[in-house]
Amino acid sequence: MISDLFSVTVLIGILASGIRLSTPYLYAAIGETFGQKSGVLNLGVEGQMLLGAFAAFYVAMTTGSLWLGLLTAMVVGALMGLAMAYVTVNLHAQQGISGIGFYLFGLGMSDLLFQKLLGTVETVQGFPKIYIPVLSDIPGFGEIFFSQNILVYGAYLLVPLAWFVLNKTTLGLKIRAVGENPDAADSLGVSVARTRYFTIILGGILSGVAGASMSIALLNVFQQNMTSGLGFIAVALVYFGAWRPIGVLGGALLFSLINSLQLWIQVLSVPIPSDLAVMMPYVVTILVLVATVSKVRAPSALSKPFERGD
């Protein structure tokens, strides 16, 4: 019943599960933030995640090393990013369409590899939970924040790190400038191409980690299309977060928390039809987006290929 929603167990459950669910969103969306800040829209995130998820799972399963699996996912993501960068930066391809192309490639390729190399759904022993001494003993908080696996902690450390890089380093300055006014950056000797290569490859790596966080840390299985549109939500979260890591964090948490809330709503037999309950995360996210119509604009050069001209 509704009153049960406010019990301690339920609140802890919702928060802990929200934090787990938000992990892949964070990696993917922070990576996408870097890309978009530099003016590149990558819609291939989902495909990069799928290949990353498969690579991590397969390598971890065959070698028994989770770290090697994670590394492979990063390499695979980086290679996908490299290809995307070549297509968008050198060939000036329309970014939305080529991104969809990369998505379909990742989807089909991960499926094909799954069929050929695994053949059936299997499981691995994923990254274990790490209980942070003392902190994890705090009732409630400990379970929510300090009893997660390493990739969950990593996702949350990534947020301030990304903020720092974007705002406090010369690299971040270049990224922001290239996304706003590539001509100006170019005229000052900043290489637009190199900067975008960097951000797209970084985005690919983080998408690979996002996939790995599902296949070898949170779910510990691989199945075809297991990301299930999550990569596209991550892209939407970048808009939601107004191109700021903290905003992305807010969006990812909001979306995930509402999702875990709706799971509890169903479990506690709150009389809401399941079809409506599963719509809640989307509806609430859209409502918040509408309500907080932000003055922040997208990077001016977003999705515009750069060509030195007149």
Partner: peptide
């Protein structure tokens, strides 16, 4: 340039510093 080569969303100092090596290495 006739059309200013300035990044509207950055500050004056950031526009000036853009592309130059920083005295603090990687940090601005």
């Amino acid at each position: 340039h006739q059309h200013f080569m300035l990044v509207q969303t950055l500050t004056v100092a950031e526009n000036v510093a853009l592309g130059l090596p920083s005295s603090r290495g990687l940090l601005t």
